[in-house]
């Protein structure tokens, strides 16, 4: 990426037709890549389910029915019932909100903290750069899942702690990328120009440099949303997930996995499929987002 394209992109923002151009680009990306289009549709669908799902489900996701335990899928219970006779379909649908919440908040925290940390380190360098670098090295040197396990085990298995643990293990990715991108641009021509025209350092960092570091981070963002859900699922498998009776895909798969051998496949399969679909969507979305925001691909 050269400075010329960057400056042209920056100045492009001030033209009145910017919105229309962006829309056109969006349409171009969507139509040229059906997979990306599919990902966007799936993502929108998931958000809708998260918003309205709990109002629409046919059964109470927490109500137990003793005479209907472990029944295979039927007309009444589309995804069957679990060991306590709870409706798996309702639980899968209701869990969407919590799972999206976990992944979005975990990723948002690590994105904001990581980007801020990396940007400061990359822009000013010095002792902060060294210190944060060591800090990130330390996190990176842990096997990530084990670190998350340790944090949740130490702090207790609440949703909040799961989110924080996931955020911490993802932090280095953003911080690294932000630092690299910022330090490349620190002395770029347009930044020098902004400096000469009297902008404060913070202003330059916030408004001139940071926006340009977003594209590479966007891709990471959606990938990590998928990982966040998988991470929560893994924690559930070793007993450190969200507390029952809360419906969450990870814990449903983790508990259901023990029923595969005994033939009750629906317990793990449906939440597993939902989880897979979500992770899948986020991953595909990552590629789509890159196409969308990558200036190199704007022609």
């Amino acid at each position: 990426m050269t400075d010329a394209t960057l400056t042209s992109q920056l100045t492009a923002g001030s033209r009145p037709s910017a919105f229309a151009r962006n829309l056109a680009h969006f349409r171009y990306v969507m139509t040229s890549n059906p997979v990306t289009f599919l990902a966007f549709v799936l993502c929108a669908g998931m958000i809708l389910v998260a918003l309205f799902g709990p109002m629409l489900v046919p059964h109470d996701p927490l109500a137990t029915l003793s005479d209907k335990a472990l029944k295979p899928p039927s007309w009444d219970h589309w995804f069957g019932t679990d060991q306590l006779g709870r409706d798996v379909f309702s639980r899968v649908v209701v869990a969407t909100r919590l799972d999206l919440l976990i992944s979005v908040s975990a990723v948002a925290i690590s994105f904001v903290c990581g980007a801020a940390m990396g940007a400061c380190a990359g822009y000013w360098g010095g002792w902060f750069d060294k210190l944060s670098g060591r800090f990130l090295d330390t996190i990176m040197a842990f096997p990530l899942f084990v670190l998350a396990m340790g944090i949740v085990a130490a702090a207790g298995n609440t949703i909040q702690n799961i989110v924080i643990a996931t955020a911490i293990i993802n932090l280095p990715f953003y911080a690294r990328v932000a630092r690299a991108e910022v330090s490349i641009r620190r002395n770029a021509g347009y930044v020098q120009a902004a400096r000469l025209s009297g902008n404060s350092e913070l202003r330059i960092l916030m408004f001139k440099i940071l926006p340009n570091t977003l594209p590479p981070m966007m891709v990471q963002l959606s990938l990590n949303m998928g990982w966040a859900i998988l991470n929560a699922a893994g924690l559930s498998f070793i007993g450190l997930g969200v507390r029952p009776p809360t419906a969450e895909w990870g814990i449903m798969v983790a508990e259901g996995a023990n029923y595969i051998i005994s033939g009750e496949w629906w317990l793990a399969l449906f939440p597993g499929a939902a989880l897979m679909l979500a992770v899948f969507t986020f991953n595909l979305l990552g590629d789509g987002l890159r196409d969308l925001v990558d200036p190199q691909r704007r022609t």
Binding site: T64, Q83, L84, P244, P245
Partner: peptide, 10 residues
């Protein structure tokens, strides 16, 4: 423990 606790809760 978990199923028992859930049923007691309810």
């Amino acid at each position: 423990g978990e199923p028992a606790a859930l049923l007691i809760q309810e």
